[in-house]
Structures are given as C-alpha cells and as structure tokens.
Design a protein around this nucleic acid. Structure first.
Length: 669
DNA sequence: ATAATAACGAGA
DNA sequence: CTCGTTATTATC
C-alpha cells in the first residue's frame, strides 16, 4: 500500500502516471487540483477516490485522488504522491462531481465540501469490515441489487394523492421524476417514503433520504426495515459515534446496501446508480449545514438529482418558498391530495383572538388560555383523548410587541425590530443596536412591552391547575418524548419535539403564537406555518373529533392557510411576496461578514455580474459588519464565482482579516 | 509551513 | 558588480 521504496528509486507507473489531487488546504486561491506522479509501486491502489498524503509547499497534507491522467499540463517538475493512505475509494466519482458543483454554488472550496461529504477514516473499522465483504459479492452488487420482496405498489398509501401512483410507477420503471409532495395530516409519511424507496430499489437503483433529526430518522429507519427487509439500508447520523458511522458509510460506499437514510450529512452518501433523493420537511433549519460553505440539504439533493439525472422528492406537511419555486419553474410536479380526501383527514381548525380581555374570561382557568382553547381541550380530555399544547421555545428571542395592543415594537431611529437581549429589560434594535429606554407604542401609547416566552414547564404547571386530575407531560429540548398513549393527558411541547399520539390527538392548542409571528426574520411566516402544520398533523381527523385551536387573529394569511389546510396557497403567496421584495428564493443573496475594511477590500476585488446590488452595511457581532449582495437567479452562478475569485485574491495576498462568505445566508436581517 | 525567486543594499 | 540578506509568491 505504501509507496515508500528506497529513496530516489521510484519510477512512474506505466499507464496514467499522473494523479490529480485535491489537497486539504482551505484557501480559495488553492481551490484547484494539483498533479503528482504515481509510482509504479502505487499503481494498483492509486485509484480515483482514495485518500492520499502529498508533499505540498513543503509540508505533508492530506488529499483525495480525483483522477488518473496520462500527462500533466503543469510546467514544473512533479513530485510523487507521498503515500496512498488506503485503497478504500471513499470519494465516489458521482459525489466528487456533486461536491465541486456545490463548492461553486456556495462560493466555497472543494476541500471544505469534501470534509462534509466524507466522514473521518477509522482504520480499524476499515480493516475489520474489509474481510467480511466477499469481494465477488460486492462487485455483483454494484448497482444490480437483488429485488426485494415484491410489495405491490398498487394498494399503497400513495393512492390518496392525485399524482402519487404515477410517481411510484415512474420510480418502478427506473425513470426520473421530480415532485413536491404535501403530506396529508396524520400521514404515515415515513411509510410512504419507504414505499418510494422500495419502488426505486426494484428498478435496480439506489436511494438517499435526508431527514432533519434523530426522531424522524428513527421513523424512516423502521419503515425501511419493514418494507425492504433486513440489511437493505443503513441509517447515518452523528449520534452513532465515529466507528459505527464509518462502518455504515463503508457499507454504502462498497455498495452493500441500496438505500441510505440519515440526517444532513447523509445527503453525500454514495450509493450505486442513484435513482431517487428524498428530503423530508425541507423547511427545518437543521437542514442548513453550519460549516463552510454552509450548503443546504435541499439544494445539495436537488443538484445531485440534476447531475445524476435521478428522481427527487421534496416532502413535508408544509411547502417552502423554494419548493414552490420548483413547481412554478416546472422543474418539479405537485403531489397533493384532493380536497375530499383532505376533508376526511384534516382536523378542524379554529382561531381565537389573543386579546388580553379574552384571557380574563371566567371560563378560562389560566390567564394564557382563551376560553375556546380551554373548552376544546376539556372536551377532548373528557373523551379520553390526549391534548397537545405547542408553546414556543424559551430563549427563542422574539421581537418585542406592545403588551396592550400587540403592535410590534420598532426602533424609533431606523424602524428595525426591537428585541430584548437575554436577561435584559431594556429593548434594543436588532439592526442599529440603539437602546430604546423610554419606549412608547405609536399605536396606543402603551409603555409596557411583552417579549419573554413562558417556558414549557411553567405552561405545564398552569395547565395542570386548569385541568385538575389530568396528567401533564412535557417534551422539550432536553427531554423529548417519542410517543404518548391514547389516553387523556395534556402534552406540552416545543416546536419539533411534539410526540406522536397513538390514534392522534383529540385537540391541539397552538399558544403564544405572537412570539412566532412578530419575529423580524424573513422566514417568520413560513416557519410559523411549518410549525403549526407539523403540530396540527398529529391531530385526529375532524370526523373523528380532531380539533385545533390557534390563538391568533383569524384574518392573518398564515392562520387562514392553516384553517383551510392549504400550504400550497400559502407558499404561492409567500413566494409572490418575496418576488416583489427581491428576496430569496426569487433572487439570490450572498452575505459578507467581517471587519468593514476587509469587506470593502473583497468587494473591490469582486467582478460582480451586471445588475448585482450591494446592500448594507448592517452591524454584526464584535465590531464586524455585514453586507449583502443580491442578483437575479440567472446571475447567481456568476456572483458566486466572482466572490470566490475575490476571496482568492485576498487569500493569495495573505490578507489578515477574514471575511465570512455565505451564499443563501440563513438569516438576512 | 517552506522553498524558490525576486528585490535590495552594502562593500569590493 | 557580486554576495548576502530580506521580501514575495507560489505551492504540482
């Protein structure tokens, strides 16, 4: 395996003696392959995709062998690969192409993307499992997987959706369709995804499924086991630890399993003959990678589908602006239930004002529970059904609103949103940072502000008093309940931590919604919609008594969309509005964060496409600032290229001050 | 990080 | 003009 023969004795391999290597050096101006000689001794193992060590600028660095070529265009003399770390081809060619495309899209470096795409090596795992895999089996299995037990797709749950059966048929035929799927409330979505995966596998193609968190992962994992049988898939997540994680990655990489499901990092999983990529709940912010170049799982999977020419399924109870754009551009087709199917499955939803007067209603035993909410919960409990109460997370800093009239509090200087910093009682502007000590509401003159969210535990205590004798349970960040039995109980949960109830909840109460709705974020409305729909989807259908009460003004579009269960209508509106304002995904944005002079330097070097707008600056943490660059979607690639190139100029000059470059930044203001 | 190379400056 | 030292720059 090692090339270390006597020094100076090395001779180049006879065929394809040059290796193109991506070195693990995260500098933008070095973001290109470098050529090395392959010694005759390394000829066998030095295959595309293996990890290598090379001497680069005097030091030994890690890298990946991208390809073997006949001769190098490089003028100078080539040095030999220092060594081939292992013969394991961990970088699949399809993934390598994807990684390059994603680096380009996000103005990042290939080596940064590869750090996300290939898990750290675990030598012992590699050695142990190499024995288990009979080499002939592995090669037989490359792509051509033996068909799993034929579970006919004709009577599947996809029949409830107009275009559902057709989509499965396309997968079964090994063709590529792209769809945005709005799952029905109460849908066993994990089972539907497993069915789609099985159909793809029957066509002899592979599947990659990405979910947001460990709980969703477990559901899909179980569903896949039920549909595909033993050993046909692996679940990838950080939770399983480095050794186990690498073992499973190798199972996929060696094409021993046709289906991979996992959280974010699984979007890079190599599988043979990729036929389908799936993302569930693409609006969940866990799908955004927090490490450079900050790619989003949805974008990675869609790019992957385009490059590999495979099917794609963007799924969730809600529909994001990005998914709506896929439909409007005709890139994907809609899979939605008809209105009459929906009527039989959706809970009935009623709004109730969040007026402080209402809260003093004598029927409500707690000040935070309007009487309709209390009434609805009481009825469900009496019928022996569990009740879900969704409250926003504590520490989730909403913008501040007037305590009397609920008008969002805005900065008197710049109209930015006011917020209360942790453990502070004086509101400060999130845009300009000015403190507003003597704030008075412009609408009603009120001087009191409302901001802090009552935590799940406090809410649970209050509700315990409101419904004496009923068990109250909480599910939140530190302790997440998976399921609750079908019996009278109050379950207080924060968004994303709602347990499933056997048979569904009799009632779902959405409380403290003003905290979600008054957020200053561009995605506040969309995120609110997502959280409401995800919680409401756990309720029983209206014909079985399922009720949802949302404590918010019924005239709001978000509330209307929930009442009518029309995530599509909402997404359409949302996208139209963003188009109007020139916000993503209608336009493409990039943010530059750093010291003002560093940002100025980068922008001066950037040859931005015509029509690019530069917005800002906005103050950011520790005397840094933030600028935004905006272009049309058609100019997005040119903008990313220009910014990467400008970053390369600065890194080549060894510029001391760094600028954080983010394409599609998670937050805009 | 380091090595090759360009630039520079002092003394023959 | 050469030699030795120091910035510069490219990194196969």
């Amino acid at each position: 395996m090692s090339s270390r023969s006597a020094r100076g004795e090395r001779v180049p391999a006879e065929r394809l003696p040059v290796a193109r290597v991506c070195v693990d050096v995260p500098l933008p101006h070095l973001d290109r392959p470098f050529d090395y000689l392959v010694s005759a001794a390394d000829d066998e193992v030095a295959q595309p995709g293996v990890r290598v060590k090379v001497r680069f600028a005097g030091q030994l660095v890690a890298g990946y062998l991208l390809e073997r070529i006949e001769s190098s265009p490089h003028e100078g003399k080539l040095t030999y690969l220092d060594k081939v770390v292992s013969a394991e081809r961990v970088l699949d060619p399809e993934v390598a192409r994807l990684a390059r495309a994603i680096a380009d899209r996000y103005a990042g470096n290939l080596c940064d993307v590869l750090r996300l795409a290939v898990p750290p090596r675990h030598a012992r795992v590699e050695a142990q499992t190499a024995k288990d895999a009979a080499p002939s089996d592995v090669d037989e299995d490359r792509g051509g997987s033996s068909p799993p037990p034929d579970t006919s797709s004709s009577d599947s749950g996809w029949d409830s959706y107009a275009a559902g059966p057709a989509f499965l048929r396309v997968l079964e035929d090994g063709r590529s369709a792209r769809a945005v799927w709005g799952a029905l409330p109460g849908e066993d979505w994990a089972a539907r995804i497993a069915e789609a995966a099985a159909a793809t596998v029957r066509a002899g193609r592979g599947v990659v499924i990405v979910v947001a968190d460990a709980r969703d992962l477990e559901r899909v994992d179980r569903a896949l086991g039920a549909v595909l049988g033993e050993g046909r898939h692996v679940a990838l997540s950080a939770a399983s630890g480095p050794a186990e994680r690498y073992r499973r990655f190798l199972a996929a990489s060696r094409h021993q399993v046709p289906v991979v499901v996992g959280t974010r990092a699984a979007m890079w999983a190599p599988v043979a003959k990729l036929g389908l990529v799936v993302i569930w709940d693409d609006g969940d912010d866990l799908h955004a990678e927090p490490r450079a170049p900050y790619p989003h799982a949805r974008e990675v999977l869609l790019t992957r589908a385009a490059l590999a020419d495979c099917a794609a399924l963007v799924a969730g109870h809600t529909r994001t602006g990005e998914a709506q754009l896929l439909l409007e551009t005709g890139w994907a087709k809609e899979i939605t239930a008809t209105r009459d199917v929906l009527r039989g499955r959706a809970p009935s939803v009623a709004p109730t004002g969040d007026d402080p007067q209402l809260a003093r209603d004598p029927g409500a035993a707690t000040a935070r529970l309007p009487s309709l909410a209390w009434e609805t919960a009481r009825k469900a409990l009496q019928a022996g059904a569990p009740v879900l109460v969704q409250v926003p997370r504590r520490g989730y800093l909403p913008s501040v609103a007037c305590a009397e009239c609920r008008t969002p509090a805005r900065c008197p200087h710049c109209s930015g949103p006011l917020a209360l910093a942790e453990a502070r009682d004086v509101p400060a502007c999130r845009w300009c940072g000015r403190v507003s000590a003597g704030y008075a509401c412009p609408a009603c003159g009120g001087r009191r502000l409302r901001a802090s969210v009552t935590g799940a535990r406090r809410t649970a205590e209050e509700l315990g008093r409101a419904f004496p004798g009923v068990p109250v349970r909480t599910s939140g960040r530190d302790e997440i309940l998976d399921t609750v039995p079908a019996e009278a109980a109050v379950v207080v949960a924060t968004p994303g931590a709602e347990p499933h109830a056997e048979g569904g909840y009799g009632a779902v109460l959405l409380l403290d919604t003003w905290a979600l709705l008054t957020r200053s974020d561009l995605r506040a409305a969309e995120e609110t919609m997502r959280r409401w729909l995800n919680a409401s989807a756990l309720a029983r259908p209206a014909p079985d008594g399922g009720r949802v009460v949302v404590v918010a003004d019924g005239s709001l579009a978000t509330v209307q969309a929930l009442i009518r269960w029309e995530p599509g209508w909402f997404a359409e509106r949302e996208l139209a509005e963003r188009r109007e304002l020139g916000f993503p995904p209608a336009a493409r944005m990039a943010s530059l964060t750093g010291k003002p002079e560093a940002i100025a330097e980068l922008l001066a070097a950037a040859r931005l496409p015509a029509g690019a707008e530069v917005l800002g600056p906005v103050p950011a943490e520790d005397d840094q600032e933030r600028m935004l660059v905006r272009t049309s979607r058609s100019q997005a690639a040119a903008m990313a290229h220009a910014l990467h190139e400008a970053a390369a100029v600065r890194s080549a000059r060894k510029a001391a001050l760094t600028v954080r470059l983010e394409v599609d930044p998670a937050t805009i203001f």
